[in-house]
Design a protein around this nucleic acid. Structure first.
Lengths: 207, 207
DNA sequence: GCTCGTAACTTACTTCGAGTAACCTACTGT
DNA sequence: ACAGTAGGTTACTCGAAGTAAGTTACGAGC
């Protein structure tokens, strides 16, 4: 006497699968989770998951991709009105840490779990970082066009790495919210970045 | 006519297994590697691996643990003679990046692959970071005893995160060696850290 | 230089979960 | 009412983790 299994339009079913999978992966880890288990919790049979995502790996990538899109949109919206590089950085970091707090579980999944399993999930995770480094890199370049591109990239990587790590740390420190985390990162990196930008001609000077 | 399988004392066999496993894991990834494959390349049968390491997960943890120990020893040796916080940081970072270059493959394993699979491997990987943050944290505290411990921790996490990420980036940028990587990180973080330390009383002032 | 004890090893399984082939059924438009 | 199909299921195969029970190389003691 199981509940009568309702049919669903594809898009809706897919979203439901992603939500359930994200939750279980985050709870138990990718390896420890079986496709049967996910299927059961969705209320559907295993081959449906394969119909929608092709493989266990595909399902994982789907989860990551959805989160990636959401993070990108939120960050882009947050930095839209920024005027100075400092404001750009601060607003971007803030949006990032807020995203993490809202998605604690799936963030663990993205960062820690996803990477190991499968080269293609790895790529998807790298894609998230790429978004972030691109954003930061472009801010640096737009405010100091003469900067060595390699250096700009390195700076962006440093900032992204710092935030990722601090985000994980924040999970164990509930007293440290998005605002404080942002302050910590800015306190460490901003003087160094500002000092470097100062030495380079501004866009106005070059024009 | 396979080569006559030589027996070996336990310690030696164990080291050999770790070396082979580290190599194959790094090449193919943890999931894509089978225990039979490792066993074959060691020249031994699968149950031997289980005799020595208990499980596939155990073998992975063994690999990580060995690398962790090596990294700790090298870093500790490198910073032994440092006098100022800046010198501490610089020498420590340098040792870290040099370790990475020497262990490119296994570093990928440690950072990316290991984390996903298994909570206990996750702990081992966290242990590596813990060593690093402890080291940095203790440097900060020894030079500025009045610093808020939470802030010191956050700073340490930020620096470790920055280095981890930059290390991954360096793999794709062979032109960026340990020296340049160290310079980049110091350029970004040192002004901020120095500024913060300056505001606090020195150990001498407190004594 | 034989033989006894055991550390080091193997063969031959069981089990479990990813992935698949082939078939089924509720809903839609006509 | 009925046909067509989107959405779904049952019942398998296959490969790899893990294990039980048996086997062999090798040094110690006589």
């Amino acid at each position: 006497m199981t509940a009568p299994r309702r049919r669903m339009p594809k898009a809706q079913r897919m979203a439901q699968m992603l939500t359930v999978a994200e939750e279980i992966f985050a709870e138990q880890g990718y390896l420890a989770t079986s496709m049967d288990e996910i299927a059961e919790r969705v209320g559907v049979s295993k081959p449906m998951l394969y119909e929608y995502f092709g493989s266990k790996e595909g399902l994982l990538i789907g989860c990551i991709h959805r989160a990636r899109t959401e993070l990108r949109d939120k960050t882009a919206a947050a930095i839209a009105g920024a005027g100075s590089p400092e404001e750009f950085l601060r607003l971007g970091l803030r949006a990032f840490f807020e995203f993490i707090v809202d998605h604690q579980r799936s963030w663990a999944l993205l960062r820690q779990e996803a990477a190991i399993a499968v080269p293609s999930a790895q790529e998807e995770v790298e894609g998230i970082r790429q978004q972030q480094t691109d954003m930061i890199g472009s801010v640096l370049v737009s405010f100091a066009p003469a900067i060595d591109p390699l250096e700009a990239e390195a700076f962006a990587e440093i900032v992204v790495g710092a935030c990722e790590r601090l985000a994980v740390w924040c999970e164990r420190r509930p007293s440290v919210g998005p605002a404080l985390a942002t302050d910590y990162v800015m306190a460490v990196i901003w003087p160094g970045v500002a000092e470097r930008l100062m030495k380079l001609p501004s866009p106005a000077q070059l024009a």
